[in-house]
Nucleic acid binder design. Structure first.
Ligand SMILES: [Mn+2]
Ligand SMILES: [Mn+2]
Ligand SMILES: [Mn+2]
Ligand SMILES: [Mn+2]
Lengths: 219, 219
DNA sequence: ATATTTTTTTAGACAAGCCTAAAACTTAAA
DNA sequence: TTTAAGTTTTAGGCTTGTCTAAAAAAATAT
């Protein structure tokens, strides 16, 4: 079944929201994510349900079906492969890729994505540390812990970022925090939940907001 | 001014038809090229004229304005750069690239196209021998002679193809004719205007139809 | 349990691009 | 020069995806 640009974006948005809220995705949340109004979302949910891409009963939120999930993951696969291409081969910074990848992810050509994957050397992760689904739409979600939830004193590495807005990523560049950086929480400041951290042997302070958008894996 | 996907395609189509018919492009020709109906073209011409991308008076055909020409050439630039990328880096055959490039040409990002150009080493021509416009939308149309119009007995090289459908390009692959191949017309067969040619030292026969879709430059 | 607030859906409209059928204009033929 | 044929435009409609306003349902508070 041939999906439109817009349908693909809705499926992707449902996938992302379902990760945070596995019980079902609400109309308002989806409207916010897709930058539309709830009324528009209602229309689209009806349409996607009719195409059996989602499970949906009035007033009860939406969930991806098998085929909807597959479609969403193939779009995400393309998005992330293009991000790798832009960073590795066109010297884009990691905060510059998302907007372009939002367009490139809708290009329809199986050959293209196959050859791109090959050209890139079958990468497993995108520049933000997110896993790249395989050609069957299967993904291995790596267990990630938010830095804000991590144990004080233990060694860890930055494995991904939750937020990937240019402003946030530029801030991380500024403090020289990237995927793979070593990190230890030295102290939690009770006053504002900010953290004193050791980042690749440099001591610095980061806000709770920042810590809530960095994923780490134990070393 | 932000152009839609569809508007970009119309401008490109007008550009291509204007090359063959500099006096102005007819509604029916444009409908054929864009695979729409003349009625739809009339609507769009009105819209493009209103945006000052074309000159257009009812019943009198269309011509690109300065800004319309620029816009068309920037789309063509992107199309051709992507074709080079697909052939040189993703090992696409020259008959497989056009369809994908039709999609990629509409991706909007100045940075992307700049970096792609750099990555490719600032190519001057696409895989079909067509010149790539520069970043200002300027193009140097190389003087090309159709093989069917070329002098018998003179040495020449294949410099471009007019038609670039997969079927035609696959036929050229089959007879091992590519951009840069050496070619001499040995004899014109009066009966059907077919040609006996010497192609890189092999003698073979090609139809008039084929000869009308190959451009050569004198050696 | 009832009332109030919030969320979701429906109703009705609109823009972009497309279509068919009919009218208007242009060109070619008689 | 009138008629016929071909081309182009207009009129009216359709689809996709969006919106605002109003109605309906669900969640929350009294
Ligand atoms: Mn992204
Ligand atoms: Mn990413
Ligand atoms: Mn092409
Ligand atoms: Mn080409």
């Amino acid at each position: 079944m041939e999906l439109s640009f817009v349908e693909e974006n809705y499926l992707k948005a449902i996938y992302q929201l379902e990760l945070e809220n596995p019980s079902g995705v609400s109309t308002t949340a989806l409207a916010e994510k897709t930058k539309t109004k709830p009324a528009s979302v209602s229309d689209m949910l009806k349409k996607l349900a009719q195409k059996e891409l989602i499970f949906y009963k009035k007033y009860q939120g939406a969930k991806l079906s098998k085929s909807g999930l597959q479609a969403a993951l193939l779009v995400i696969r393309k998005h992330r492969l293009w991000e790798v291409f832009l960073v590795k081969h066109l010297s884009f910074a990691w905060d510059e890729v998302h907007e372009v990848a939002e367009q490139l992810e809708h290009i329809k050509s199986n050959l293209l994505i196959k050859r791109l994957d090959q050209f890139l050397g079958y990468p497993k992760e995108d520049p933000h540390g997110d896993p790249i689904p395989n050609e069957n739409g299967e993904i291995i979600e790596i267990p990630k812990i938010l830095l804000s939830d991590f144990t004080t004193g233990k060694k860890a590495q930055i494995s991904a970022v939750k937020e990937s807005s240019p402003l946030f990523l530029q801030y991380l560049d500024k403090i020289k925090a990237g995927i793979g950086s070593n990190i230890i929480i030295q102290e939690r400041i009770a006053f504002d939940n900010s953290l004193e951290i050791l980042l690749d042997d440099r001591t610095l302070y980061i806000s709770e907001e920042v810590a809530k958008n960095i994923y780490v894996t134990e070393d």
